[in-house]
Simulated assay, not measured.
Amino acid sequence: MKIVSWNINSVRFRIEIVEQFLREVSPDILCLQETKVIDGDFPAAAFKALGYKHIMLHGQRMHHGVAILSRVPLVEDDRLDWQANREARHIGVRLANGMRIENVYVPAGGDVPDRDVNPKFGQKLDFVERMTAWSKSLTAPTLLVGDFNIAPLPSDVWGHKQLLNVVSHTPIEVDALDRLKASNTWVDLGRHFHPAPARLHTWWSYRSPDFTVNDRGRRLDHMWATAEVAAKAVSHTVFEGCRSWLKPSDHVPIMTEFAA
């Protein structure tokens, strides 16, 4: 089974590259973040035409939004409000084999890494803490995927020292993410298959006309698995080439393949 996570940054605007990716890679399940569309306007027909007949949506007009598209049945779904303001940032499903997939879009957190002067930063930290509380009581075999908006390791960013005070790589965010990871048997599949200090990036800013010139990337997108799910993982791929496609997202897809 191949499971993909991708912050698409508007699924309707980029539907052509989504279709291209699905035709070329043919994953079983696709988890999208930042779909930026209400459920009624989601381009479901395009996915159904490619065999993704099982669709779970949690949308919001112009902002946020998550979705799970699948070729295999999805037994149930839920939508957790880790942001505590009803923003569409989570959707979870259970597969017929009992495994859960939780798809999350963690807030970016604004520009200033100080909750007293930047409420968005505080909301981000609180979001991760609510995820941690959820994780502590989690018993089901689970795959947690999405845009975490945190690059935890020095080798997860283009310049560790340069970004220590930049939101997404600050020590306080890394500490929060470490607490989430320690709250259960989570295995970071990206680093399981590509151990640090190997370069591993999933996001490049739009500010650079050619992202390959300076390669100032960050690993903001993650797949974590509880121990029993991680034991079945056989590979993890970052599709860096998608960043050069027509009208690309600033994030690229990541995929883990699991044995049956």
Results as ranks from 00 to 15, higher is better:
residue 227 A to I: 10
residue 85 N to Q: 12
residue 192 H to W: 06
residue 162 Q to P: 00
residue 192 H to M: 15
residue 255 M to V: 01
residue 169 H to A: 08
residue 26 S to M: 05
residue 163 L to D: 05
residue 219 R to M: 03
residue 243 R to L: 11
residue 198 A to M: 12
residue 130 R to T: 03
residue 227 A to M: 12
residue 222 H to M: 09
residue 33 Q to D: 10
residue 76 E to R: 11
residue 164 L to D: 03
residue 89 R to S: 06
residue 165 N to T: 13
residue 189 L to K: 05
residue 17 I to A: 01
residue 100 R to W: 04
residue 6 W to Y: 13
residue 177 L to F: 11
residue 14 R to K: 15
residue 161 K to I: 14
residue 233 A to G: 04
residue 208 S to L: 05
residue 259 A to M: 15
residue 18 V to K: 14
residue 136 K to V: 09
residue 9 N to S: 14
residue 22 L to P: 11
residue 64 H to M: 12
residue 90 H to D: 09
residue 120 K to A: 00
residue 62 M to I: 11
residue 28 D to W: 01
residue 61 R to M: 03
residue 67 A to R: 04
residue 80 L to D: 10
residue 68 I to N: 09
residue 5 S to F: 02
residue 56 M to I: 13
residue 83 Q to R: 00
residue 119 P to C: 00
residue 148 F to I: 13
residue 64 H to R: 06
residue 125 L to G: 11
residue 72 V to E: 05
residue 157 V to A: 13
residue 59 G to I: 06
residue 159 G to Y: 08
residue 87 E to V: 07
residue 250 D to P: 13
residue 117 V to Q: 00
residue 28 D to M: 15
residue 1 M to K: 11
residue 5 S to A: 14
residue 118 N to F: 08
residue 35 T to Q: 11
residue 230 A to N: 14
residue 237 T to Y: 00
residue 148 F to V: 02
residue 227 A to S: 14
residue 84 A to S: 15
residue 66 V to E: 14
residue 243 R to S: 08
residue 31 C to Q: 10
residue 120 K to V: 00
residue 34 E to R: 01
residue 77 D to N: 09
residue 238 V to Q: 06
residue 247 K to E: 11
residue 87 E to H: 15
residue 239 F to G: 05
residue 208 S to M: 09
residue 57 L to P: 13
residue 51 G to F: 13
residue 103 N to T: 11
residue 57 L to E: 02
residue 244 S to A: 14
residue 165 N to K: 03
residue 213 V to T: 15
residue 156 D to Y: 11
residue 54 H to C: 12
residue 72 V to W: 03
residue 248 P to Q: 10
residue 195 P to V: 11
residue 46 A to Q: 12
residue 198 A to I: 02
residue 177 L to H: 09
residue 43 P to H: 08
residue 14 R to S: 00
residue 240 E to F: 00
residue 135 S to V: 02
residue 23 R to A: 13
residue 245 W to L: 05
residue 55 I to R: 04
residue 170 T to M: 02
residue 188 D to H: 03
residue 57 L to Q: 07
residue 149 N to W: 06
residue 215 D to W: 14
residue 123 Q to T: 02
residue 133 A to F: 02
residue 90 H to T: 06
